[in-house]
Design a protein around this nucleic acid. Structure first.
Length: 203
DNA sequence: CCAGGGATCCCCT
DNA sequence: GGGGATCCCTGGG
């Protein structure tokens, strides 16, 4: 487990109690690329449905690819709100994407999960079998977890959300982000090295 | 590869 | 205030 996460857990857990707690929202009020790295291997659950995060991307207000680049608007307001909350937006008219707000104007886009809890529910929502395709992309993941615009701005350390810090050591792959034109060279995509649950291989 | 899908926001009247 | 390019995508060829 990352050192900072471990300290927060210890502070939140009564001595002797074996309770798993969600990372507190204050955890996310730090530089977005640090958090993006630390989120690889972290557990993400919505009403108990979810699994390990295996792919994320970082965005901040200095970044021409970011929704926050040109300042606050009604759509991106959550990115300028408190850290540790959700920024959910609709893309291409059909899909939703889930981001974790970090320092003001920055967020981590959650792009892929390794499903572990509530797989049956995910299969139902996605209308297909095959664990590798349930959450292998931001729109797929949002659909599998039941994420919609109603989740925009919600705190991530309270129901229905739960985020647990990664517990194991693992190799992290770094590369260019996917599907953008501006800022395309910025290496702010982070993946769990070798995971079969990525949206696309690293490049 | 490429069509579908609709909101958003730039930039010009 | 409005036209139109753009968009952090997906699924099916």
């Amino acid at each position: 487990m990352h050192e900072r996460a471990a300290r927060l857990y210890d502070a939140a857990r009564p001595i002797g109690a074996d309770i798993v707690v969600s990372l507190p929202r204050s955890y996310f009020d730090r530089p977005v690329t640090d958090i993006a790295r630390e989120l690889i291997g972290a557990g993400l659950f919505v009403a108990g449905v979810g699994g390990r995060i295996v792919e994320v991307e970082a965005y901040d207000a200095t970044d021409p690819a970011s929704h926050s680049f040109r300042g606050p608007t009604p759509r991106n307001a959550a990115m300028f709100g408190p850290a540790g909350h959700a920024y959910v937006y609709k893309i291409y008219g059909i899909h939703f994407c889930l981001n974790i707000v970090c320092q003001k104007g920055s967020a981590v886009l959650i792009r892929a999960l390794e499903p572990s809890e509530g797989v049956g529910t995910m299969v139902e929502r996605r209308g297909l079998m095959g664990e590798k395709q349930l959450c292998s992309g931001p729109g797929k993941l949002a659909q599998a977890l039941g994420i919609g615009l109603g989740h925009n701005g919600m705190p991530l350390d309270a129901f229905p959300f739960e985020i647990r810090a990664a517990e194991q050591e693992h190799a992290i792959g770094v590369g260019a982000r996917i599907g953008i034109t501006k800022g395309a060279e910025t290496p702010w995509r982070f993946v769990l090295q070798g995971s079969p649950f990525l949206s696309r291989p690293l490049r």
